[in-house]
Design a protein around this nucleic acid. Structure first.
Lengths: 229, 229
DNA sequence: CGACCATTTGATATGGATCAAGCGATGTGG
DNA sequence: CCACATCGCTTGATCCATATCAAATGGTCG
C-alpha cells in the first residue's frame, strides 16, 4: 500500500507525443487500457515472476516495488538484463518464450496482462500495434545503452548507472536504490567489491554522497557526466 | 562485383514460417514486398551509409557485402553494435533518428527502403505491422546476446563470435570474415592484440584453423561451445 | 621491388578480480 | 533489553587477464 505517484489511472489525461526514446517502456495511450486488462499481483522479495524459456503468456507492469530480469550462465555467473521500477513494463516478448528470468527485488505489486489479449487487440487497432512495437524498441534502446556501459571502465559504468537511475527516480538528485550491491555488480559486469570501492572513490571525489548504503545523493552531476564518457 | 550467393531477388520463392528467434532480421513474407519498394545502392569500402542522430528516413537490406553499425565515444573508443550480412536488415528505427552510424565494411550493395512507405503500409496491413515489430524484436535479441558476450572472458567472446558468424555463414564450418581484426575487437570490447592472440590460442588448441587471416575453419565446435559458457 | 597496411608476436603495466578480514545494521532468542 | 548471529557492505592485500607499448612479419597493390 504505497502512495507513490504512478501513471494516471482511470483519469482522462494522457501523455502526449512520445518521441522520448531512452528509459524503459512506459506506454502512452495504451496505459489506461492495460490497467483494465491486468490483474494486480503481489510478489515477495526475491520471488520469481517468470523463468527463462517459459512460455510468455503474460507481460507485466510494475505498480510498486522493483524487478530485475537476468540470465545465469552455466558456470553460475549472473547477468542482470535490466531493472524495472514503478510504471515500467517488462516481460514483453514477440517470440513464444521469455528470454530472461524475472524476480521481484523487494516486495512488489505487479500488473499481469495476458499477451494474447493485447496482440489480438493490436491486430485490430493499429495504434495498439504501434505501441507494442514502440515498447520493444524502447527495450532495444535500453539494451544498446547497456552494451555501451559494458565496454567502459568501472568508474564510468557506476557513474552511468547512477545517472540512469537518477533519470528514472522521482527526486532528481537523491536516489533510493532498491537493489543490492550484488545486483548492481551483475548489471554492470563488475564484482561487488569493485562497485563498492568505486562508490567510495566517487564519494571521496565529492561527486556523490552515500548517507546510507541504499541511498545515493548526486552532488556533482557534471563530474559524473564527464565520467560517463 | 562479387559472386557471393545472395537472397533470391525477384524470384517467387519465399522463406516460410519465421519462428526462429536469434540472428539478425531477415524478414519473411515482407521480403519480396520490400524488394519492390527499395532501390539498390552501391557503397564503397568504409563508406558511410548513415550517421548517428540523422533522421531515419530509410531502412536497409544488405544485398551483398557487409555492413557495420557503431558508436564512437567522446574519447574515441568505438563500439560496433552489429555486423550485417547479405539478407540482413538494418537501420530500422521506431524513433525519428538513427541511434548508430552505419558503414559498408567492404564494397557492398544495399537495398534502400523508405520507412514511411512501410510504416504507412503497416497501418493498413497488420501482418506488415507484425513483421516490423518482429524485426525490432530480433534486433533486441541480438543486443541481449551481445550483452551476454561482453561479460565473458576473451576466449569466450571470440569463440562466441566465431560460432555466431558460423551460424550466419553459408558454409557451416568455414567462415569468411569480411571485417578486420579491429572491427572484431570493437565488437567484442577487446583490443586487436587480444583478438589476435586469442585466435592463435584457439588455433594452437586445434579448435580452429586460420588458413588466411580473413578465413577461419571451425575444427572443433564442441570445444568452442564449451568455451561459449 | 618497395611502400603500405593488417596482423601477429613480444615485453611490460595495470585495472579489476580474487581472497580474506573487518564492520555496521538488523533481527532473534534468551 | 541485551548478546549474539546473520547479512550486506566496505576495506585491504595480492594476483592475473587484458591493455598498452613496441617491434617484427606478411600480404597487397602500384
Amino acid at each position: 500500500m504505497h502512495s507513490q505517484p504512478m501513471t494516471a489511472r482511470g483519469s482522462t489525461q494522457q501523455p502526449v507525443a512520445r518521441s522520448a526514446r531512452p528509459a524503459p517502456a512506459t506506454l502512452g495511450t495504451l496505459g489506461n487500457s492495460i490497467e483494465l486488462m491486468g490483474a494486480a499481483m503481489p510478489f515477495a522479495r526475491n520471488a520469481e515472476i517468470y523463468g527463462e524459456n517459459e512460455p510468455a503468456e503474460y507481460l507485466y507492469k510494475v505498480v510498486n516495488g522493483a524487478v530485475r530480469t537476468y540470465k545465469v550462465l552455466s558456470d553460475g555467473r549472473r547477468q542482470i538484463g535490466g531493472f524495472y521500477l514503478p510504471g515500467d513494463i517488462f516481460g514483453l516478448e514477440v517470440g513464444d518464450d521469455h528470454t530472461f528470468s524475472a524476480e521481484a527485488i523487494v516486495e512488489s505489486k505487479v500488473l499481469v496482462i495476458k499477451r494474447n489479449t493485447l496482440v489480438a487487440l493490436a491486430s485490430r487497432d493499429n495504434e495498439v500495434a504501434r505501441q507494442l512495437w514502440a515498447m520493444t524498441a524502447d527495450e532495444l534502446q535500453r539494451a544498446q545503452g547497456h552494451i555501451l556501459l559494458l565496454i567502459k571502465t568501472a568508474q564510468e559504468r557506476v557513474a552511468g548507472f547512477l545517472l540512469e537511475m537518477a533519470t528514472r527516480s522521482t527526486s532528481a538528485n537523491e536516489i533510493e536504490l532498491p537493489m543490492s550491491r550484488q545486483d548492481i555488480a551483475d548489471y554492470l559486469g563488475l564484482t561487488i567489491e569493485t562497485v563498492s570501492r568505486t562508490l567510495t572513490q566517487l564519494e571521496n571525489s565529492a561527486a556523490i554522497a552515500v548517507p546510507s548504503s541504499r541511498r545515493i545523493v548526486l552532488r556533482n552531476r557534471a563530474a559524473l557526466s564527464r565520467l560517463n564518457a
